[in-house]
């Protein structure tokens, strides 16, 4: 690990001013940053500890029934908050399926979104071709072992997936990432937050140097929602494929609106937009549901070893629809 200097920020304005200087990294939970430094994925010259900033860990309800979650709220606190469990169970379930109890006590909801891929070529301690770690060195996974990699939206530059579970739930919930920076800040829809995989090194999201996530906002509530995660171990493992589903049912219990996001299939949570449109108006038990779900996979482009993710993803969405249809809001 390369040397760095450390300081604690007491107020947000101080953090934003110091964060603008290149080479400065914000430290929140630290569960990713420390490992990045160990693997030389990142080598910041200055670490700015923001965990003492006050007022950035609150979980508040919004007038429209939605939620505002402070960026520094710890994952376990978000998942177990009664308002989150009741209003957006999909988010609570996604968080509790992520990492371990210990890591969720450190990791924050804001930092979670900024995880980098778990592609083994990217995380390898040896020098392997990886455009995300060393631009121009190639992508070892493109023609290597890619059973855990993307089926949507990849390029020859990078075929990796994003590992976050909470981000998949937030994508299905149309959440927004609220930021602050010297010039003010912005509200970034989560589905515009991640950059395509051929963007430059270290640019997985649209965040600029010194731009700080201050909150996540979720519009409205989604009591009929679920997160299902398929993995090779029962617990404490990244997803093979996961699904976040939120259904709005009308008075005849037909699907008024479906929001479906898949995890571990692309460099960002992947909304199945075509399937969502095809599902609208259908009864959850209708035979046409299968074709509607399959339409979401028309643009899938499997790699050499991961065509199974199409069948797995389709079956997962179908199972999620069955389970959510049994819920009463």
């Amino acid at each position: 690990m390369q040397g760095f200097t450390y300081a604690r920020a007491a107020v947000v304005s101080e953090a934003l001013a110091a964060g603008r200087e290149p080479g400065t990294a914000f430290l929140a939970g630290g569960t990713e940053l420390l490992n990045w430094m160990r693997l030389e994925i990142a080598a910041p010259a200055r670490i700015l500890d923001i965990t003492h900033l006050s007022g950035l860990d609150a979980i508040e309800t919004l007038p429209d029934g939605g939620l505002r979650i402070g960026a520094l709220a710890r994952l376990n606190d978000v998942a177990l908050a009664p308002a989150v469990v009741a209003r957006v169970p999909v988010l609570s379930q996604a968080i509790l399926s992520a990492a371990s109890a210990q890591i969720r006590n450190l990791a924050t909801i804001g930092g979670n979104l900024l995880q980098k891929t778990r592609c083994p070529y990217f995380r390898a301690e040896e020098m392997l071709p990886c455009n995300k770690k060393r631009p121009g060195s190639g992508c070892a996974a493109r023609d290597g072992l890619n059973d855990r990699h993307a089926i949507f939206g990849w390029s020859d530059i990078c075929v990796a997936t994003h590992p976050s579970d909470p981000a998949v739930a937030l994508a299905a919930l149309d959440a927004a990432v609220i930021t602050a920076c010297g010039a003010g800040g912005r509200r970034i829809p989560i589905n515009e937050f991640y950059l395509p995989p051929d963007a430059g090194q270290d640019r997985n999201s649209v965040l600029e140097q010194g731009e700080l996530i201050t909150a996540i906002e979720i519009p409205g509530s989604a009591p009929c929602s679920i997160y299902i995660k398929i993995r090779e171990r029962e617990s404490y493992e990244y997803a093979t494929v996961s699904v976040a589903l939120a259904l709005d049912l009308d008075v005849w219990r037909r699907i008024a609106r479906a929001r479906v996001a898949l995890g571990s299939v692309a460099a960002r949570p992947w909304r199945l937009t075509a399937a969502e449109q095809a599902l609208a108006g259908l009864e959850p038990g209708a035979a046409a549901i299968t074709a509607a779900v399959e339409s979401g996979f028309a643009e899938a482009r499997p790699l050499a070893h991961n065509a199974y993710k199409i069948a797995l993803g389709r079956n997962l969405v179908l199972r999620a629809i069955r389970l959510v249809a049994e819920m009463t809001p």
């Binding site: 200097t5 450390y6 300081a7 604690r8 920020a9 007491a10 110091a18 700015l48 003492h52």
Partner: peptide
């Protein structure tokens, strides 16, 4: 460590 924002 808080307040003066000295990176050390």
């Amino acid at each position: 460590l808080t307040g003066r924002m000295k990176f050390r």
